[in-house]
Design a protein around this nucleic acid. Structure first.
Ligand SMILES: [Mn+2]
Ligand SMILES: [Mn+2]
Ligand SMILES: [Mn+2]
Ligand SMILES: [Mn+2]
Lengths: 158, 158
DNA sequence: TCAAAAGTGCAGCCAAGGCTATAATTTGAT
DNA sequence: ATCAAATTATAGCCTTGGCTGCACTTTTGA
């Protein structure tokens, strides 16, 4: 008598879905993702500015540009937006500084970034992939997911 | 004699970094994330179109709009871009259809989406959070990370 | 010291992804 | 068969996030 064979890895991942989520549920999810996407840049900027200030004492336009891999003009425009949003200060030809709320945001974003990286590393992902993926994933993790990541790390301490 | 107390959860996640990645390394990572961000919409559209066709027989503009939570005009413009990229066909006032390469992309994206959701569920994340987060995370997982996700799922089969 | 190099700022361009408003076509119910 | 509702299309507007080119400061080193 033959046992039913164990499903192959990924067997449930192929073929059409038999049922879609409710329209409004799906719209809510996509909307949340759009919102997160809209704040990614802001988060990356304040995090990077905080890191540059912490390690080098100051955050200069060219440094930000080189680390992000964009032109300096792009950085200047982005910084203007951050200024409008009261996350940074800057005077012409001087460095860029975080406001109090900018520092607060940077602290939250930095902690989240590290948690995501630590989680991916704990999962056994090679460090460079972990760092690269975390740079995108970090902007799309809910509180519940962050908590699960933290728990996993705790449970897999050496 | 007092033992060194175990680090509190998240203890390594606070405070400034003592060292930053090399400039070019960080630029490469941010660049990869930018690239992924640029293709998110494309991926979500073809996945959704495939799902609509699979369950309802056709993908109409209004259905896509309602499920994404955007205006129908936004969908029409996005579909024009997908057409330019040869991922879909459509004739005026008729439905939207995937080309062969559109179907191939949809299949890959769908499988990846399900794998990410399955992973988050296996981690113990509540289903609605898992689905919502996956909608963003799915676009930022490298092959190495996907593999690690699949392995985790395998190791945590019921 | 003072010119070259580096850094910063600004203008203008583009594509993407949103929106609203209006027009055109198709569909469906009497 | 008709006409109202639904759907699809188009036009025009906005913001963001890229870019290049050019001008202006600041820094640096010979
Ligand atoms: Mn990031
Ligand atoms: Mn980050
Ligand atoms: Mn998605
Ligand atoms: Mn998806």
């Amino acid at each position: 008598m033959s046992r039913k064979p164990t499903a192959l890895p990924g067997a449930s991942m192929v073929g059409p879905p038999d049922r879609l989520p409710r329209e409004d549920t799906q719209a809510r999810r996509f909307g949340a993702t759009r919102l997160a996407r809209a704040t990614e840049l802001t988060e990356d900027y304040v995090e990077l500015i905080a890191d540059l200030m912490a390690t080098g004492g100051e955050a200069r336009t060219v440094d930000i540009a080189r680390r992000l891999g964009v032109s300096h003009a792009t950085v200047i425009k982005a910084v203007a937006r951050l200024k409008r949003e009261a996350l940074v200060n800057s005077k012409p030809y001087r460095g860029i500084f975080l406001t109090d709320s900018g520092q607060a945001l940077a602290a939250r974003v930095r902690a989240r970034h590290r948690l995501v990286v630590a989680f991916l590393l704990a999962l056994g992902i090679p460090p460079d992939d972990a760092e690269a993926d975390a740079e995108g994933i970090e902007h799309h993790v809910s509180a519940a997911t962050l908590q699960a990541f933290a728990r996993f790390i705790e449970d897999h301490k050496p």
